[in-house]
Simulated assay, not measured.
Amino acid sequence: MSGATASRPPAVLFTGFPGFLGSALLRRVLARGDGPVACLVQSRYRDLAARRARDIVADVGDEGGDGAAVHLYEGDVTEPDLGLGAALDDPDLLGGVEEVYHLAAVYDLSVDADLAEAVNVRGTEHVLDAAERVGVDRLHYVSTCYVSGRYDGVFTAEDLREGQSFNNHYEATKYRAEVAVRERMAEGLPATVYRPAIAVGDSETGETDKLDGPYNLLRLLLAQPRRLAVAFSVPGAADTELNVVPRDYVVDAIAELSGRPETVGETYQLCDPDPLTVPAFVAAMSDAAGRRTVTVPTPKPVAKAAARVLSARGVDVEPATIDYFDHLTRYRCPNATDALADTDVSVPPFESYVDRIVAFARANPDLGDDPMT
C-alpha cells in the first residue's frame, strides 16, 4: 500500500481507476467538489493512474491548493482488506471516507470462472466489508443490466432474483455481486445501484478504451469488401433488442444521480428505453462502416464455430457475443427516465453517434478487447 497524508484526508474512495469509466466519473466527482478522492490502484497500473490523475486535476483544478485532490493507494479488491490494512482505520488516511464508488470488475464475456468469482463477487464483498468498517455514508455500486441473465420478458430495476440462467461467467458473477450488495442494503447499508446496458464509446468523440461487445460486429464488417459483407443472423434475432448506450451517458447519469440524497436505496437501469432490434443495429453499423451487408440465417452453434474460425484466422470475433443476438430480455428504465427528466442527461439514439464510434475504432485498431483486471 502507498498513499500520501495531506492537509485534507480523502472523503471518497474509488475502485476501478484508471479504467475508462472510472477515470471519467472521477473527473465529474472532483469537478463538483466532492473530493479529495482516494483511488485504489493495482501496482501494475500505478504509473498510468498517476498520469491520468495529474491530467484530471490539471483540468478540473485542485480545490484545496495542496496538490492532494487525488490520492493513489496501491491495493486490490481481491484482498480481504483491499490491501489497505490499517489505513482503513486511520482518520488521516482512509478512516474518514464518507462515500465509496465501486466500479472495479472484470468486464469480459469470456472471462474465466475463477477470475470472475475473485474480482466480481469476492471483490465486491471485500469492498462492502471495507465500507462498513469505515462507516461510510453511502456506497455507489456499478452493476449491469445483464444481471438479468437470459430472462424471457421485460426486466426492470425492480427485478433481480428471477430464477434466470446466464450466458457466461461475467453475467453470473455480476448477478451474485449485486445480490450481495442488495443484502447489505437490506441490513442498513446506504447504497445506490447503477446498471448500465452495453456501453460503447463516447457519443461525441467515439472514444473508448477497448473494442469489445458490438465492436466484434464492426471488425467482422471491416474485414470484408465494401460492396458485399456477410453477417450472421441466428434464429430469434429479429425479435431481439440490442440495448446499447454511449459511455458518456453512463457517466453523466451516475454523476447526476449520485449527487442526490433521495437516490439512496434505489437501483437505476441506465439503458436505452427505445433500443434497436438486432437487424436494425446491424444495418446502422453497416451504413456507418460503409458496407453493403447481407445477413445469412445461421444456426447459433454454427455461428459460434464460424466466429472461432475467424478469430483463429485474424478476424477477432468473440463467439460469446453471438449469445446476445437471440437474447430475449428487454430492458426498461422508468425510474431512471423519471429521475433524469428535468436534466440534460438522456440517451441519444444509436444512429446519432454510430458514425463517431466507427470512426474512432477505425483510427485505433490496436486497442484490442482485453479487460483491465
Results as ranks from 00 to 15, higher is better:
residue 55 D to C: 03
residue 131 A to T: 13
residue 98 E to C: 05
residue 40 L to G: 02
residue 216 N to R: 03
residue 148 S to F: 06
residue 358 V to D: 09
residue 150 R to L: 05
residue 73 Y to I: 00
residue 82 L to G: 04
residue 350 F to I: 11
residue 350 F to C: 01
residue 26 L to R: 06
residue 163 G to N: 02
residue 278 V to F: 09
residue 150 R to Y: 05
residue 4 A to I: 07
residue 28 R to F: 00
residue 371 P to K: 06
residue 247 R to S: 14
residue 138 R to Y: 12
residue 283 A to F: 02
residue 3 G to Y: 05
residue 152 D to A: 14
residue 288 A to T: 10
residue 275 P to H: 09
residue 133 R to M: 03
residue 12 V to F: 00
residue 120 N to M: 08
residue 254 I to G: 06
residue 150 R to K: 10
residue 128 L to I: 13
residue 56 I to E: 10
residue 214 P to G: 03
residue 33 G to F: 12
residue 5 T to H: 06
residue 172 A to Y: 12
residue 48 L to R: 14
residue 294 V to I: 13
residue 68 A to K: 00
residue 195 R to F: 00
residue 53 A to H: 03
residue 183 E to R: 15
residue 48 L to N: 06
residue 109 L to C: 04
residue 297 P to Q: 04
residue 239 D to G: 14
residue 223 A to R: 06
residue 100 V to G: 07
residue 78 T to D: 01
residue 299 P to R: 11
residue 318 E to N: 15
residue 35 G to H: 03
residue 256 E to N: 01
residue 240 T to E: 08
residue 322 I to F: 02
residue 103 L to P: 03
residue 26 L to I: 12
residue 141 Y to S: 02
residue 215 Y to F: 11
residue 364 N to M: 01
residue 124 T to Q: 01
residue 306 A to K: 02
residue 9 P to I: 07
residue 227 R to W: 15
residue 43 S to G: 10
residue 235 P to H: 11
residue 66 D to G: 08
residue 223 A to K: 03
residue 340 L to C: 08
residue 312 A to V: 02
residue 351 E to W: 00
residue 83 G to P: 10
residue 195 R to P: 04
residue 52 R to Q: 14
residue 332 R to K: 12
residue 227 R to F: 14
residue 42 Q to R: 15
residue 140 H to I: 12
residue 135 G to C: 09
residue 33 G to L: 11
residue 70 V to M: 05
residue 177 A to W: 09
residue 177 A to Y: 08
residue 170 Y to H: 14
residue 72 L to Y: 04
residue 276 L to E: 09
residue 99 E to P: 06
residue 63 E to A: 15
residue 259 G to V: 10
residue 303 A to Y: 11
residue 112 D to P: 12
residue 181 V to H: 12
residue 166 F to K: 07
residue 182 R to I: 08
residue 174 K to D: 06
residue 42 Q to T: 09
residue 315 V to E: 08
residue 48 L to A: 14
residue 355 D to W: 03
residue 360 F to P: 02
residue 30 L to A: 11
residue 134 V to R: 02
residue 283 A to M: 01
residue 274 D to C: 00
residue 6 A to D: 03
residue 280 A to H: 08
residue 348 P to F: 00
residue 54 R to Y: 00
residue 120 N to Q: 07
residue 199 A to P: 02
residue 283 A to C: 05
residue 135 G to T: 10
residue 96 G to P: 12
residue 367 L to Q: 04
residue 309 V to F: 06
residue 169 H to A: 15
residue 169 H to M: 09
residue 332 R to I: 00
residue 284 A to Y: 01
residue 343 T to A: 08
residue 102 H to S: 10
residue 133 R to L: 04
residue 263 T to C: 04
residue 91 P to F: 06
residue 44 R to K: 14
residue 77 V to S: 05
residue 269 Q to N: 15
